[in-house]
Design a protein around this nucleic acid. Structure first.
Length: 940
RNA sequence: GCAGGGGUGGCAGAGUUUGGCCAAAUGCGACGGGCUUAGGACCCGUUUCCUUUGUGGAUGCGAGAGUUCAAAUCUCUCUCCCUGCACCA
């Protein structure tokens, strides 16, 4: 049994004291691997490991390939989540406190986490411990934290460069807002961690007959204006007359209060819902006057609290009218639904489309709001996608188009105004409903800038994307990304240079920070005030020279010069690793920012995108309570098994799956290899034999395929070949009588190195067990020797396997008849069959070979006496399975030798004595059926 | 809707770029057998259907059509599933 925990810590100590992961620029080619610095507001779990593990495998592999590899790590602290967590702990929120306790954090430490900086540093510590324990080959001298003053100077510089390129613009912006706490609300501040969904709707003005105000009716679907039969208000709710931007409206009091965060709202007076019910409302498009009714479903705190009723297209409206009729409302009884659009392109759909979605029978009973809502969603979707207008000015147009036109028509003519709502009714942790607040003067990064986009496209072109199929997502993302709001009123981070009251948002301050790693170990002692524009301009842009930069900053010439050299050296080749969920924001912004700030030679060279980690078949999430902390996973299985399972058990783009059974499977195989290495003394060196060459051939083939796979980060392919195929090969080698100590040592040594990027601790241990004193982690990657590939020998071994398999099949059939055979006779086919077989193997063209036989070309070519009749019969019998013919030249003499050589093995496997002979000299009834690579089998 | 990914045997999951040793790797499960006092571990076999003193045949990789001597693999149409659509990290 391997003590995985023991070897983990042993080799981690040795590597650390040998400083093999702390590189400096030298004469080798550089290779820099980075992954997003983790956000440290909670414990590290195995989900984090996918990206970092993949990056580490690549880093370790490239190191062995002879590159000078830098794999740095930092910590992301910027933004609101850490503040939010602290706040929740302060408020004694049991959910978060229980989570912390479950992770094993002492009460006293939880207490201290009310200080966000303590919380961050606590988890930084945890992450570092876990990352070290899993064996990441990180240069720990370069840990930057996104709120270090030096980091902030760098971000300020970045924004000044962006600003000087005209990429920062100002404008209006909508945010989620808690009226109670008076602050912006993001996902981390809501109940159940939902993102407040801000949506734009249109408020249509229905002039109230005889009054100087209009009803403001909010809707997503202005195109249904042609089908409005009435208006709904909430019975019993308080409404108000108010003034917004010079217009007077009636709307619910609650709505007016919410809209005050978007507009300047002046309330004139309150008005009861019953007063509104008595009035007439003029449709701004059709000019028709309609009545108002009480609607059971109306929520006076949503939108404007006044709803247009389109019974033909909205199940709720239809149901509400039906309900009114049931209660004896005679005016409602006169209302006929008006069809506005049809999902049938010929207009042949039903006259009252809502009937296709709503179970009208159920309307006679109790109201089932959930069912009506579901019908509404379905109808809305279908009509949006397939609908064609059948009435009004835009008759014949598709709905999406018609909606856009009607929207701009109405807002343009002053018949409507735009407003924002929280579509998902998100609620702040304090319990208040979130509202939409309009902020003027928000700063945006303008990713819509065409020149910038062009540069980003160029940058993408110059980068390798892994997996290859991931590229199209980037192409889309570059076109799609537009304005991004960058200023926040709260959170940790760097202040926006243009507005010192604002913090730079946390994805925007992490787009080019990887470049800072290259010099972090040099500047971490430098006072942050000295890191001015001249310094960064020189180090990262090469502007000016070291002397003047040193003079203007007060930093020593040596340091300035070293920084520039370090950046220039390391940033020549960078490989960025991240999860696929970051393609549409972080990774795309990463490309954009590199493209505009740095010289082309420092642009990203490779971007690798990976999937996530499933746990026992389920997506990991806090709410499911199935997140597995890295430290407990390691405690169970050791670092290498976890690395293997989490990082290598799926293709790069697919989700990998962590499960105990998978982990056990990996461990068993590692144990097998280890035991074999332990038992090497039982074998002794000898001359190379057939089966030794077979193993060498397999090994070299494996080296080549693993190397190719890792280059493409196809780690599943690589790891399967390295571990699973290897154990199968080793078992077979021993079974076939292989026992050469030198060969086994060679094989295991190569295997140790091949596995080293994936299972570094195990490999290091194996490497030393085999008598080596160097570090496997720093060894040269094995190179596949083409000369050792022996296709023929592999084919021969395959032949033996096939022969054994077929023999067992026959023996079984015979056994069913109650016979117990003692001997198997193999009859190797005649030479002419081999000639035809090889001829067919060339191009698998049956008719060509037939022609050869008939025309006599065959005899001319091969100088052999053929029996035309039998040849034709043989070829036509082969016609059906021509696909299965192997493209390997064989002959009967060799095949006979192979079988004779393997007699003892076959005999052991089948339990029978083995005899072999040629077809020509055989009297066996099975002789005629013999074929190349499929000898006749007779048991007796 | 837009964009991205996918549909393979009881399950998980390769194979698709470059069509042909593909009835389809590997793992798990199930069943039968061996070994054991027993269980575990381990070993052998079976695991689409039919056929069988043999290595044969049929069907088959979401559905349908096409290209080809040959299709899981290429083309087209359809269908279903998953993910993202932001200012949250």
């Amino acid at each position: 049994m391997i003590d995985f925990i023991e070897i983990d810590s042993k080799w981690q100590r040795e590597w650390e004291s040998a400083k093999i992961f702390e590189p400096s620029p030298d004469s080798r080619e550089s290779y820099m691997v980075t992954a997003p610095f983790p956000y440290v507001n909670g414990p590290p779990h195995i989900g984090h490991l996918r990206t970092y593990g993949t990056a580490d495998v690549l880093a370790r592999y490239k190191r062995m390939k002879g590159f000078n590899v830098l794999f740095p790590m930092g910590w992301h602290v910027t933004g609101t989540p850490i503040l939010a967590s602290s706040k929740r702990i302060k408020a004694k929120d049991p959910d978060i406190i229980n989570d912390m306790k479950a992770f094993g954090i002492e009460d006293s430490d939880i207490e201290k986490m009310t200080d966000p900086i303590f919380l961050a540093s606590y988890f930084i510590d945890e992450f570092r411990k876990s990352f070290k324990a899993i064996g990441l080959s990180v240069d720990w001298r370069r840990q930057l934290i996104s709120i270090n003053p030096q980091f902030s100077r760098f971000i300020e510089w970045q924004f000044s460069v962006l600003n000087s390129n005209g990429l920062l613009t100002q404008g209006r912006h909508q945010i989620g807002w808690c009226p109670n706490e008076n602050n912006a609300v993001g996902m981390h501040d809501t109940k159940h961690d939902v993102e407040p969904e801000i949506e734009k709707v249109i408020g249509i003005k229905f002039k109230v007959d005889g009054e100087e105000y209009s009803a403001a009716c909010a809707t997503y679907r202005p195109e249904t204006i042609y089908g409005v039969t009435n208006i709904f208000v909430k019975e019993g709710a308080t409404y108000v007359i108010c003034e917004i931007e010079g217009n007077r409206y009636c709307m619910s009091k609650k709505a007016a209060e919410k809209l005050a965060y978007q507009f300047s709202v002046k309330v004139i007076k309150e008005i009861s819902s019953s007063e509104l019910l008595g009035k007439k409302y003029i449709n701004p498009v059709t000019g028709e006057a309609v009545s108002a009714f009480p609607g059971f479903f109306v929520d006076d705190s949503f939108g404007t609290g006044m709803v247009i009723s389109v019974p033909a297209h909205a199940p709720f409206d239809y149901a509400a009218l039906a309900e009114l009729v049931k209660r004896g409302n005679s005016v409602a009884a006169t209302i006929k639904p008006v069809k506005v659009l049809d999902i049938d392109s010929k207009g042949a759909g039903p006259d009252i489309p809502v009937m296709s979605y709503l179970d009208t029978e159920s309307l006679s009973g109790a109201i089932d709001s959930a069912a009506i809502e579901e019908a509404g969603i379905k109808q809305y979707r279908e009509e949006l996608h397939k609908g064609i207008m059948v009435t009004g000015e835009y008759k014949g147009l598709r709905i999406k188009e018609a909606r856009e036109k009607i929207w701009t028509d109405m807002t343009g003519k002053g018949n409507a105004f735009e407003l924002y709502i929280i579509a998902n009714n998100a609620v702040c942790r304090c319990g208040w409903a979130i509202v939409v607040k309009t902020v003027d003067g928000q700063w945006f990064l303008n990713y819509g800038n065409e020149k910038w986009k062009a540069k980003a496209r160029e940058a993408l072109k110059g980068a390798v994307v892994l997996p290859k199929k991931g590229r199209s997502a980037f192409e889309r993302a570059i076109e799609w990304i537009d304005l991004r709001a960058v200023a926040r009123s709260q959170g940790l981070g760097t202040k926006l240079p243009m507005d010192n009251t604002k913090i730079i948002e946390s994805l925007s301050d992490s787009t080019i920070y990887m470049s800072l790693y290259t010099i972090w170990n040099i500047i971490s002692g430098v006072e942050s005030e000295k890191l001015n524009k001249e310094f960064f301009d020189f180090v990262f842009l090469g502007k000016g020279d070291a002397e003047s930069a040193a003079k203007s900053t007060g930093i020593s010439y040596e340091i300035v010069k070293r920084c520039r050299e370090a950046f220039d050296y390391w940033y020549g080749f960078t490989s960025r690793h991240s999860g696929m969920d970051l393609v549409f924001n972080h990774l795309t912004m990463y490309l954009f920012n590199h493209a505009i700030i740095f010289d082309k030679k420092y642009w990203p060279k490779q971007i690798a995108v990976n999937g996530s980690v499933l746990c026992e078949g389920e997506k990991m999430s806090k709410s499911l309570g199935n997140t597995v902390p890295i430290k407990s996973a390691i405690g169970r299985h050791g670092a290498d098994v976890i690395r293997f399972v989490v990082v290598c058990s799926a293709d790069l783009y697919a989700d990998s799956e962590y499960s105990d059974s998978a982990a056990n499977g990996v461990r068993e195989r590692l144990e097998y290899i280890n035991t074999l290495a332990d038992n090497l003394k039982l074998y002794s060196p000898a001359e190379l034999t057939h089966i030794d060459y077979w193993l060498y051939s397999k090994l070299n083939r494996k080296i080549i395929s693993i190397t190719n796979a890792i280059e493409e980060l196809e780690l599943r392919t690589a790891s399967t070949a390295a571990l699973y195929d290897s154990t199968i090969e080793l078992k077979r080698y021993l079974l076939r009588g292989g026992s050469n100590q030198l060969v086994l040592t060679d094989y295991l040594s190569s295997l140790a190195l091949l596995l080293s990027p994936i299972t570094p601790h195990f490999s290091e241990d194996l490497w030393h067990m085999l008598g080596n004193s160097t570090f496997a982690a720093a060894e040269k990657w094995p190179s596949g020797n083409e000369a050792m590939l022996a296709g023929k020998i592999e084919m021969e071994e395959k032949l033996i396997d096939d022969v054994i398999e077929d023999s067992k099949h026959v023996l079984e059939l015979v056994a069913k008849k109650g016979k117990q055979p003692k001997e198997i006779k193999y009859i190797v086919a005649s030479e002419w069959k081999y000639i035809l077989n090889n001829e067919l193997a060339k191009d698998k063209n049956v008719s060509r070979v037939m022609d050869m036989i008939k025309s006599g070309e065959l005899e001319n070519t091969y100088d052999f006496k053929f029996d035309i009749q039998r040849c034709m019969g043989f070829v036509s019998s082969m016609a059906k399975k021509v696909n299965a013919i192997r493209n390997v030249e064989t002959n009967p003499a060799d095949e006979l030798d192979i079988i004779n050589d393997a007699k003892s093995y076959i005999s052991k496997e089948t339990g029978c004595k083995v005899v072999a002979e040629g077809e020509d000299s055989s009297a066996s009834p099975k002789a005629a059926g013999s074929m190349p690579l499929k000898p006749g089998i007779e048991v007796s």
